[in-house]
Design a protein around this nucleic acid. Structure first.
Lengths: 333, 333
DNA sequence: TTGTAAGCGTTATCAT
DNA sequence: ATGATAACGCTTACAA
């Protein structure tokens, strides 16, 4: 259970701690190959591994990166983690994670813990939109915001192009000759939802298509289902060629079930598209044209930015980077 | 950027480092309340926070728990993480995560990194079924396996009751008066799939229901879809009251789409049930009777076991704990 | 009631 | 080409 120390290695090899340390850190200045060999063998034989805590104390580097995710229990966040984790590993950093559970106080608590641990950098999906909340950390170590930008734009961030990709999809819809876009979304209480809605509507307007906002209620209520049924029934009976856009996976799923229920043919009677956060839309019949966020790319990119900010040799890049979403053109529109 | 040290606090407060240290660790033996107050204020004023690295070096505790997940990019694993993370936090431990990506070598690498970091315990979704692979870590610090047990049963583990919960669901199906169970599953190449299949079939046999195995092909192929269509058509035309059981979320989703496609009424013409790994089955119409694994409970429980194994005061519990799945009785069966 | 000092396992600056 | 030795910031006997 007790770990061997550098002192033990040194005395076993008949050299000083300093020499062993030099060897381990690759500082063979003019070290004789004889000693090198001797040390190599002793290290091997005693199965020696340096004590990180001691190294950290001495070098003032922790090798730790902290990542605060809003909610780990959803696929999007976990892909974020996955991407970040891969890059961290390549660069020999360890990822420490904490969950903020969308609560300001636990976010603050998590940040404090990170500072205590002297993480060398932090990645965070910020809860607040107020940049100043993150000053205490941002001053102590590099920090990159993930997924959301705060105001004013004090911190570097990696965000998703909610407005842009909906715009592209909208343009595709236009090109396909639809005359009306029905935008199904949960209530417009978050920035993300508003951006997706706005992006779609802007293009419709620009090309003088009609657009209609359909805010749906709590998806777990059966009344929501029947409301949607009524709404869709009206929609298809209009004298328009309508395309539906659902602004997230769950809404999209419900739209599809309603359409099946009503025996409405896709894309003959109505076009369907939406965001596919869980990557299941290809399973549907017909496969759904959808926007897919590559969350793991976002995590990876954020980690890359953070690491160059940490590296004193590299120029730090304090900017906002926008990661494009992928648009899967399939059969439903 | 430079952090204040205990020495600075001590001299600012006009006491010794030892006294400050005692105060910080709550060892006010017979410390005068005057000194306490003096120290409290100085700590506050200088915004002092102890250096963890130094504490760790001295006390030989890292406050770190390592968790190796097989693949962070799926909902199941991330819920595992989420549960573990919450418990870790309550107990003032930090969670360090690494991904093994289902590769033996990167699992080994990750384990090594954890040992180097002197984590106080490790949670792991083991890749290998061979207990001996985990000895090097298991000897250094407490370890709990998550999700899978290795042979021989050397290590404590928290696993899921794939056999048991399918059995319960099967019994419910029997009680509902079905005369045949059709088990839809991807090919039986993993232990999990085999357990789910076996559990279901065992009960059918016991109650002399007919059971039929339907192995489905690659879910992304359209041929799989049409095969399934044919198969289901045959099934409903039989002179039996048949219940379908789909052994994972994707298969279940496809079954549902086929049924809709064929205008087959659930549960009138056929009963439907299955595993719901993404918790979307409630959205379906009618809502689907399904088995739901509470991954976050599993993660939490594993972390709890690990922490009691770490705590020298507590008796260590080296056993395998099976977490029951939740069976959601809804309308589809 | 509080202070002194040794030591945790490294690294890095001097010497030699 | 290598060895002493002093830190790094903390905790904890032991002294006073």
């Amino acid at each position: 259970m007790k770990k061997t120390t550098i002192a033990e290695v040194a005395s076993a090899a008949g050299v000083s701690k300093a020499t062993v340390s030099r060897f381990l850190n690759g500082n063979y200045g003019k070290m004789s190959s004889a000693t090198q060999e001797k040390i190599r063998q002793t290290v091997q034989r005693l199965n020696y591994r340096p004590n990180k805590q001691a190294q950290m104390l001495k070098t003032n580097r922790s090798g730790l990166i902290g990542f605060i995710v809003a909610d780990m229990g959803n696929l999007y966040s976990s892909k974020l983690l996955s991407g970040a984790s891969a890059v961290a590993r390549e660069n020999d950093y360890q990822l420490v994670i904490m969950e903020s559970n969308n609560s300001l106080s636990s976010e603050e608590d998590a940040l404090k813990k990170f500072v205590d641990q002297s993480v060398e950098g932090v990645l965070i999906q910020p809860i607040s939109e107020d940049s100043s909340r993150y000053e205490s950390v941002g001053k102590r170590c590099p920090m990159v915001l993930v997924d959301r930008q705060t105001t004013p734009k004090t911190w570097p961030a990696v965000i998703v192009d909610n407005a842009l990709s909906t715009k592209y999809l909208a343009e595709y819809i236009v090109k396909k000759g639809y005359s009306k876009i029905a935008i199904f979304t949960e209530s417009l209480t978050t920035d993300v939802r508003r951006k997706r809605y706005a992006g779609m509507r802007a293009v419709a307007k620009e090309h003088s298509l009609e657009s209609e906002l359909v805010e749906v209620g709590n998806l777990q209520l059966s009344s929501t289902y029947s409301d949607m049924k009524d709404r869709i029934n009206e929609l298809v009976s209009e004298d328009e060629k309508v395309a539906i856009f659902a602004s997230n996976s769950q809404t999209l799923l419900m739209v599809l079930r309603v359409l099946d229920d009503l025996r409405i043919k896709i894309p003959d009677e109505v076009g369907v598209s939406g965001y596919d956060d869980w990557n299941w839309a290809f399973l549907a019949q017909p496969a759904i044209t959808s926007i897919e966020q590559n969350a793991s790319d976002i995590g990876a990119e954020a980690m890359r930015m953070l690491l160059t900010d940490i590296d004193p040799l590299k120029e730090s890049i304090s900017e906002t980077k926008v990661i494009p979403s992928k648009i899967n053109i399939r059969e439903s529109i």
